[in-house]
Design a protein around this nucleic acid. Structure first.
Lengths: 130, 130
DNA sequence: CTCTCTGCAAAACGTTTGCAATACT
DNA sequence: AGTATTGCAAACGTTTTGCAGAGAG
């Protein structure tokens, strides 16, 4: 296991992630971080997002629309993806421990994490239906 | 909306999907189908898997390991992904309707589907830990 | 001094698409 | 005949990687 060294780039990425709730893609992170760090490279953004995910300071959210989203909130929570505008929302509800227990009971191994996404159409997109 | 025409390729893909519970990637489907259909192209496999998904005869499962998996079982159920061997398991447990209701209550719109994946290490991989 | 991290560019990967030919109805 | 579907190959968007140089401990 490699030991971590400080890097300004990683610090900026981490702080951007912690101040937004928009679940940005790597590319969105890249564009924002570049405002403070014009020479940062996309590869560095990817490397740090993966590193933060590995050490548990960020979460990867895999959605069916191509790009992976990142979330600086690492406490377990559910998400809802609008299938029209592709915005990703946090759901303000408890992750039921009983469902994880139930899953543990029927999975032949050790479950260590749970991720759920609900798909729907958000109120904003419902309004402008054609 | 386009009307469907019969195609032997689609039929073979559909039947392969319905006889396996291994949640194959498009590429895996391609390799198997090619045994009966040596000249089928990967593009055709993708087109048909997407088409089957659109008409509700297959389900896309988005996992964080690169490729999308397909499932011929379209009734709602949970999955568990082994983070070591990347096998994807069906979980033999009920999808709780109450959790969907709860989500509906706090999502500002209309929820139409729910997908959950549990991550863990399957018993097979637990055995050969180094 | 050593080992991690960076920028850059190229490559890898899964997936989609344009096109002319073919199969279905 | 008319339209959906196919095979092929090129293109696409996202993510990873090899490398030489810069930065942190």
């Amino acid at each position: 296991m490699a030991s971590l060294k400080y890097s300004r780039q990683r610090e900026v990425i981490k702080s951007y992630l912690s101040t937004t709730d928009s679940h940005p893609t790597a590319d969105t992170v890249y564009m924002h971080v570049r405002e403070q760090f014009p020479h940062i490279s996309l590869g560095t953004v990817y490397r740090n997002l993966n590193l933060l995910t590995d050490i548990g300071e960020a979460i990867k959210i895999t959605t069916p629309d191509g790009a992976v989203r990142f979330d600086g909130v690492t406490s377990p929570h559910y998400h809802a993806l609008c299938t029209e505008c592709e915005r990703l929302f946090d759901l303000d509800m408890n992750v039921s421990e009983s469902i994880i227990e139930e899953a543990r009971a029927c999975f032949p191994g050790t479950i260590h994490s749970h991720s759920a996404i609900f798909y729907g159409v958000c109120s904003h997109c419902l309004g402008k239906k054609h």
